[in-house]
Design a protein around this nucleic acid. Structure first.
Lengths: 341, 341
DNA sequence: CTGAAAGCGCTTACAG
DNA sequence: CTGAAAGCGCTTACAG
């Protein structure tokens, strides 16, 4: 395999000059440069990137830790990160934790071992103190998930108020028996959306019955099972707010399998506005998060941290939007217009 | 930041011994080892992995090039790869091409630049000669997609026969006016499934009308639009075989929006058996691919290539399975049993 | 079982 | 504008 030294010899220059042609061409005379480039092309020389990484102590890799790579939500966020990374010459290393906190911790070691220049966490379930310490030493950004009172750059929406908005929508339709299928309750996002739910209920003096709160695990199947439980109650709810669209999808399936009509017998609100929420029949009322933009912004902030640029704002809170669709709209338009790009 | 040399001094040994404690502990005496480990823990020393990569000329990174990270199909394949990689101490670097052939080519450079020890391509749309050459120099595996007559290890199903099977299912239901929504026709998979479709039609002496073949681009939206075109024909088809479930989902939505009942007026078959195909109403008849196993096997083969182990079989062809569901089953079970894990 | 020394392939501060 | 030289932090063949 051709090395820089070999190229240098062929071009009758020093390795330093070859390096400059590749990394700082403006420092080399036009003549030398084209001579060297010709040799590079001729022998198809590719610099040994690991050697460069080692020499410069920069990898141009960043790590993104995702709780679930198969989720439609996170893959959109990833896209945003990816685009900004690529445009700035960074590779994305993907760490999929599959919602396992130990694996989340393991990935952090990649930072300590200098395998990556920075890290974006889309899941923040580990020790707060450790993360805070880490972020004083390394470029680190949280996105989507966050930790209360943590002094680390964070990009997200306001989950409490979004959940409140979703619940208020159900209340405004006249529902009083409203249930919530939460996410895993050890995750802050789940607690925040649950809090928003309770706030909306309480401010209308509506009872929050404990059997109306069922803990899911973000997945379709748990949405299905928890909805089945809710429907089996002596007094089943007439409306349900699910932590995310995937569980809302499961809840709707459970209703159908139980002969319960959505939205007439049961109104359902989801969260995230994944593509399936508009495709499903009925389409699902949901909270739209700017997934791509969250990813984009998180990467932009990470770049600033890596380049030691000043951060004007440590917490970025994006706006979300309630999108009302068939799962809460009693007058169903059979020919609902297809929502597509 | 603590270096190996610092640890060595603190433990009163040479750096070589510290290195051995970390990489080959069996070569070090029990006493020395525990002394060194104590220091390592005390100062929380983490080896500089890039230095190690540089020294050993092995990165323990592998690259997976995916055509679309947001696809439910590919993320399952990724999981299989990931699990085997992790178990063997490899990190996965993700290259998302977004179906762009130039980006596919760019990712290949990571191999030439020695940033990764090997590569799994889930998309193979670039120059055959180049790939073949590459695979003689570097560990390289194709999975899902492949190239005809290419002498590179490949893991996939037999797409021609699967497509034939899917089409024969429609024929066996009495359909004669059968359409096909293909994938992008510059991709071999699309051509293979189209070929299987034609084979099934011709062997039954059924006409393959050119207007019955519509080229999509793998996405929901194109399934929708192409189905709309098919339904607008003077003699619309009574059945359609879509390249994948995502487009089948789009086709079904188009039928619904046009007041065409699935499966009574239009039977639909998809491909891949993504989760949504069982959730959708009607659930979708499809070809199940062993997604996770394909990923797993591809990574196992890559490991063999990396370790210079012998390969018994360059082409692995997995079995697929036709799963008959509501989109082709006229007697609809309202209480269809939910298929879940 | 342990240490001294070489070297992986680049980049860059320094000198000219 | 260009070159000689140092050095990034490890691992391993060699010697003892």
């Amino acid at each position: 395999m051709m090395k820089m030294n070999d190229v240098a010899k062929l071009a009758n220059v020093s390795p330093a000059t070859v390096s400059r042609v590749i990394c700082h061409p403006e420092l080399v005379s036009e003549e030398t440069r084209s001579k060297v480039l010709e040799v590079i092309n001729q022998v198809n020389y590719k610099p040994h990137i690991v050697a460069r990484q080692f020499r410069t102590q920069k990898t141009r890799n960043i790590l993104v830790v995702v709780p679930d790579i198969t989720s439609a939500f996170f893959s959109k966020v990833l896209r945003g990160i990816e685009h900004v990374a690529l445009k700035n010459g960074y590779q994305v290393i993907l760490g999929d934790t599959e919602n396992n906190i130990e694996r989340e911790k393991d990935y952090v070691d990649l930072l300590l071992q200098k395998q990556v220049d920075g890290m974006i966490l889309l899941t923040a379930r580990q020790d707060k103190v450790r993360l805070e310490e880490l972020s004083t030493q390394f470029p680190l950004v949280l996105a989507c998930e966050y930790i209360d009172g943590l002094n680390v750059p964070t990009v997200s929406i306001d989950n409490v108020s979004s959940a409140r908005k979703a619940t208020e929508h159900l209340i405004s339709l006249g529902h009083t028996k409203i249930a919530h299928i939460s996410g895993s309750i050890n995750v802050i996002l789940s607690r925040d959306r649950l809090r928003g739910f309770k706030q909306a209920m309480m401010s209308q003096n509506l009872e929050v019955e404990s059997s109306y709160i069922q803990e899911g695990d973000f997945k379709f199947e748990s949405g299905y099972h928890q909805m089945m439980k809710l429907l089996a109650l002596e007094v089943p709810p007439t409306a349900v707010f699910a932590f995310n669209d995937e569980m809302a999808l499961g809840a709707i399936k459970a209703a159908k399998d139980s002969g319960v009509n959505v939205p007439n017998d049961l109104a359902v609100v989801g969260f995230d506005n994944i593509k399936m929420s508009s495709i499903n029949e009925p389409s699902i009322t949901t909270i739209d998060q700017p997934k791509y933009e969250i990813g984009k912004k998180a990467m932009e902030i990470l770049l600033k941290l890596i380049n030691n640029q000043e951060l004007h704002n440590k917490k970025i809170v994006f706006k979300d939007e309630l999108i009302v669709r068939g799962s809460t709209r009693k007058e169903i338009d059979v020919k609902e217009t297809l929502e597509m790009v």
